[in-house]
């Protein structure tokens, strides 16, 4: 089972990276979302995999093992924050597309003069 989870993380990472390398905003956003899944599972898995032992204390019962609650708490906020970040990226992409009619992520190659102007 560990192999399955690890390979799922790997597949999500590879797919996310490939999409992040694309040239249009939308696939890049999808890629970032896939990478978010990968990272969240990766963080979650740092508590190791436990089945059927949710981190809910059973009152009056001693000696039960619980799964590690700490990574879960961290990942929970990470999921919500990543929604916020995705939304910001989407908005920036939309603004660029609506404002410049262009949804490519890379700057067009420029000659040196234009670059100088940009930099100053």
């Amino acid at each position: 089972m560990e192999l399955l989870v690890a390979s799922a993380i790997g597949v999500l990472t590879a797919a996310g990276l490939y999409l992040v390398f694309r040239m249009r905003t939308f696939p890049v956003i999808l890629g970032i979302s896939l990478l978010t899944y990968a990272v969240n599972i990766f963080l979650f898995a740092s508590g190791r995999l436990t089945i059927g032992a949710p981190p809910i204390l059973q009152k009056g019962v001693e000696g039960i093992t619980y799964t590690d609650p700490l990574p879960q708490a961290l990942v929970l906020t990470a999921i919500v924050i990543s929604f916020g970040m995705t939304a910001v990226v989407v908005m920036i992409a939309l603004g660029a597309y609506l404002g410049g009619d262009d949804d490519t992520v890379n700057d067009a190659p420029k000659d040196d003069a234009a670059r100088q102007e940009d930099a100053t």
Partner: peptide, 14 residues
Amino acid sequence: IAVLGGLAAMGLSY
């Protein structure tokens, strides 16, 4: 490059 990254993530988590 993507597969390289994926393999690295997979190896580390495994």
